[in-house]
């Protein structure tokens, strides 16, 4: 579904990604793991065109995304849940969801029903300002907002960041449910142990380069990952 080949990107003169290649097949849940500053967020930002690639190619279902303006990426079926959730804190929950459906307004009512079915908590709080939600609810709302565009591929940037351990558990349970709903998911995470329980495959990204990749279970069992990321 999504193919990234030999991608280089960065900010100004600072290069964050060096020839990264990866692939996400339809129906898969794939994780990109790695330490802080490895370029994980940059990778997602390059895929959704918030920053321009300086080299390489990004294709979605065979069509090239490189030249597409950022606001048209969502029309290709890619929805991005950004780092730190980035809800519109002074808009209500439902107004946030409405923004998620900005590019597909006719489907708003139908998708709202689907999303509220998935997250009944959000329906209870539909008229509350998003900034007043708890951290876990905000993450829920951010994911729901992305689902409102009816995406094929969901990009999740550190959904567990900044949440209490017990809430992190529920967020990963949520990610698992999203995958079970049939969405293709590319997730970036630092909580390596937990994310590897949720996804099918994973890539290890270090200082802007893919170090290794493979089935989640195999990576979790590999000595390198265990030593560096799982503290075993």
């Amino acid at each position: 579904m999504l193919a990234v080949s030999n991608l280089s990107a960065g900010y100004g003169s600072f290069q964050a990604l060096f020839g990264v290649s990866l692939e996400v097949r339809a129906g898969e849940a794939v994780a990109v793991i790695g330490p802080n500053g490895a370029g994980k967020t940059t990778l997602l930002r390059a895929i959704s065109k918030l920053i321009d690639a300086s080299g390489g190619e990004i294709t979605m279902e065979g069509t090239r995304l490189n030249e597409l303006p950022a606001h048209e990426v969502i029309g290709r079926g890619i929805a991005h849940v950004p780092e730190n959730r980035r809800l519109f804190s002074r808009l209500t929950v439902e107004e946030n969801l409405r923004m998620g459906a900005f590019s597909s307004r006719k489907k708003f009512v139908e998708r709202l029903r689907f999303v509220y079915g998935l997250f009944p908590r959000l329906e209870e709080r539909r008229d509350q300002l998003a900034g007043t939600l708890s951290g876990g609810e905000q993450q829920m709302c951010a994911i729901a907002r992305a689902l409102m565009s009816g995406p094929k591929l969901l990009l999740l940037d550190e959904p567990s960041a900044g949440l209490a351990p017990v809430v992190v558990q529920s967020i990963f349970a949520l990610v698992k449910r999203i995958c079970a709903e049939g969405y293709t998911v590319l997730i970036v995470e630092q909580s390596v142990q937990q994310v590897l329980k949720v996804v099918d495959r994973a890539y290890l990204l270090e200082t802007g380069r893919i170090r290794s990749s493979g089935a989640a279970a195999a990576l979790a069992a590999s000595g390198e990952i265990q030593r560096s990321y799982l503290g075993l």
Binding site: L50, A70, H71, I74, P82, F88, R90, L91, S103, R145
Partner: peptide, 20 residues
């Protein structure tokens, strides 16, 4: 609503499919 949203967070509007 997009006008109010963009006043809060300009940078992520393209992720909503909005041309700022």
């Amino acid at each position: 609503i997009a006008i109010r949203a963009i006043s809060q967070d300009r940078a992520i509007m393209p992720l909503m499919g909005v041309n700022p």
